[in-house]
Amino acid sequence: MQKVSTAVIAAENISAWYGSNRAVIDISLGVNPGEVLALIGPSGCGKSTFLRCLNRMHEEIDHTRSEGRVLYKGEDIYSDDVDPVAVRSCIGMVFQKANPFPTMSVAENVAAGLRLRGGFSRSEIESRVEGALRKAALWEEVKNKLRAPGTSLSGGQQQRLCIARALAVQPEILLMDEPTSALDPISTGRIEELMTELKKSVTIIIVTHNMQQAARISDQTAFFLMGKLVEHGNTEQIFNSPTREETENYISGRFG
């Protein structure tokens, strides 16, 4: 188990409910700065729900609640004086399906978060947009069509556009909820490459169904099963010598 003090974000005894159904049960898990943490497990094991607890997106769904603490740089994001809106602008999120705003151009999509926060000059916005697009490895492909609608890009480009949109506000943590599950292998490969590049500046927590992906890109892996955290450790150790039988079964493809 991680030492909480070095983790940039750490969940402490997080539980989450949909109505009366408890989807996440008492999970404590942290990630160190600059690392990639992969959350793996079969469908419905609570990994996405857990991820959504880390930037208070879970509570946006009706009839949900959560318990426990999430320490972001030592501060509990669930404490009463914390505004969830502020949390979400520090902890970015990329979703399963690319979701650029259909009425906005490529550049406007990336700038959306900056515009919401306000206080940026035109030139600042432009340079941040370019920076975010470069970080998302999309700049070269779209620099001549910044005014084109965001939805005119290909699926993989749209997902990288969404990554750029999340990066534009310079978050320290990026949550990714199966970001490549709707993409073809080539686009997936580009996003994986991108993640190894990104982790120099952002801490990434990624939910993935694809175990090879977890093995390729993550430093730490956590295995979830039926709402519980079964095992967490170095990716290499989890994939080569898991200590728990359930982990071994899942990784070797016996279920899930």
Binding site: V85, F95, F101, P102, A166
Partner: peptide, 28 residues
Amino acid sequence: PDLLREAATGIGATRWETIRLAVIRPSI
């Protein structure tokens, strides 16, 4: 689609900003 609302909420939009960005603008 709800995923547009999530996109807005996820970049730190308030309820009203989410409605403006993700609901009204695509619905003009």
